[in-house]
Amino acid sequence: MRVALAEDGALFREGLLMLLRAAGHEVVGCTADGDALVELLTRQPADVAILDIRMPPEPDGGLVTAERLRAAHPGMGLLFLSHYAESHYLMRILEIGTEAIGYRLKEKVGSVDVLTDTLDRIADGEIVIEPVLAKRLVERPRGDRKEIVDSLTPRELDVLKLMAEGRSNNGIAGQLFVTPKAVEKHIANIFSKLGLQEEGSEHHRRVLAVLTYLRSQRAES
C-alpha cells in the first residue's frame, strides 16, 4: 500500500517509518507538518495518509490538513494517530468523513499486523476507532439520552460497541461467539430502536447507527 505520513515528533516519525517499511508498505512521503504533506500529495498519489492530530499548523494541524486532503483526494484514506483518545476529537474527525477514516492511539499500532490491519480496513472504506475510546463511549452513557441505551439489551450494546470499532458482521460474530445470522438480527433491532429507516446501504446505516449513538453521548447544547 502507498502511504504518506505527517508527524512533528521526529522519534515517533522515524519509528513509524521503519515499521511501515517492515510491513512492506511504500512510504511515498514523510513530513513534519500538515502543509508540507498537502503540497507533497498534489504530486504523489497515496492510498492512505497518516496524520498526527497535534502538529503544525497549530494547534490541531492534523484536522485542518485532513479537511484539505479529503476535499482534494476524496478516495484517499485518512488515519489519525494521537496521544489522546478523546470523543471531542472523534466528533471532529467524523465531521470530516465517515468512510475510509481511522482514529487510533500512537502506541496501539505498534506491530506489523495491527498497523497493516488498520490501514487495510481504512483503505477498504471502513471506520476504525480506537477500542479504548469506543468502549468508553458505549459504557459511559450521558444521563439525558440514557433512554437510548436503556432500550438496548446488553447483547445489542456489545454489538453496537463492536460496530463502533468498525468491525464487520463476521468479525462481531467471531468476537461474541455467535452466528453471523444472530448478529444480523441484533443489528436490525438496533437500527429499529435508534429509529434508522430502511433506506441506503447497510454500511451507511451502520455508520449512522454509530453516529446516532455517538451523538447521543454528546448531545449538542
Binding site: 515517533f12 519509528g15 513509524l16 521503519m18 515499521l19 517492515a22 510491513a23 502506541e107 505498534g110 506491530s111
Partner: peptide, 12 residues
Amino acid sequence: SALVPQLGVVRN
C-alpha cells in the same frame, strides 16, 4: 510512544 513502533520492527 516512539519505542512502540521500534519494538514492532524488532519483533518483525
